[in-house]
């Protein structure tokens, strides 16, 4: 057990080392969300009425934070798929280490990347007028909450990465699912304007509940943007926690099992 943890830490370090060796990855994974902050803030900011004091940017930031961490799924998945195709996985699997160490290490490493990215986005948001006013405790908690969401999604990423054979296919699949999910939500605009069925979908969407929970933690009122009166819109924080626990309860054992048997048949 002690070995399993230290093995996972070695893999985490490796993930971080990759970031240092190819700083472009870090730079681009930071630039893109920062660019989104600026684009949404100035392109839509004028036309979307959020009903927030302090303007659209208060409403927007939690949305972009969540969208960004949601893409952890794609990052983890394609990174792992790439290791699979290069035969690196065979080397890891022939080492005398716990089978779970590699996948735990990878998910942790990808969360570490999220810390950097979230920090950069927060800074950019602050520059363009984002002012959370709920106090340091709640703000810190909100960021931890975002990291936890990203962490749980990276377990789906592990599963997807192990299931498919080609890194580019993995990239496309995860992008094509994550992208619409982040838009069919309350992340960028209130759900009120959506057709009724879509509105229900959007409110049950985990992206929405996490966004709403963050808005609450950052001190916004009317966090959900709008409400069709559904359960998740009433209890976003609790619902998000349920989602995260459920995702990990399903995907951690699935992924570890899949990894253990990968290539065995």
């Amino acid at each position: 057990m002690k070995n399993a943890i230290s093995d996972a830490m070695v893999i985490t370090r490796r993930q971080l080392l990759l970031l240092f060796r190819v700083p472009e990855v870090l730079i681009f994974s930071t630039i893109q969300p920062v660019m989104f902050v600026l684009l949404f803030r100035y392109v839509f900011g004028g036309s979307i009425t959020s009903g927030q004091p302090g303007g659209y940017v208060q409403f927007l930031m939690p949305g972009i934070f969540v969208q960004t961490v949601a893409f952890t799924l794609a990052g983890t998945a394609s990174g792992l798929a790439e290791d699979m195709t290069k035969g690196l996985i065979d080397r890891y699997r022939s080492l005398p280490i716990a089978r779970s160490a590699l996948v735990f290490g990878k998910t942790l490493g990808d969360s570490a990347l999220n810390i950097v990215v979230l920090f950069a986005m927060g800074l950019a948001g602050f520059i363009v007028g984002w002012r959370p006013d709920s106090g340091i405790m709640k703000i810190t908690f909100a960021f931890l909450f975002l990291l936890a969401f990203g962490y749980s999604l990276s377990w789906i990423g592990i599963f997807v990465g192990l299931s498919a054979k080609d890194a580019r296919v993995v990239q496309n699949i995860s992008f094509l699912t994550t992208f619409p999910l982040t838009f069919l939500s309350n992340a960028f605009a209130p759900t009120t304007g959506m057709p009724r069925p879509l509105q229900y979908f959007a409110e049950w969407n985990p992206v929405s509940t996490v966004v709403a929970a963050c808005r609450e933690l950052f001190g916004l009122t009317n966090q959900f943007g709008a409400t069709a009166g559904s359960f998740p819109s009433q209890h976003p924080l609790m619902m998000s926690l349920i989602y995260m626990v459920a995702i990990m309860a399903i995907f951690i054992p699935l992924s570890v099992r899949k990894y253990t048997s990968a290539g065995k048949s």
Partner: peptide, 12 residues
């Protein structure tokens, strides 16, 4: 084990 295709981390 040294497999048919060198299994080392290209980037590192």
């Amino acid at each position: 084990l040294s497999g048919q295709y060198a299994a080392v981390d290209e980037i590192l």
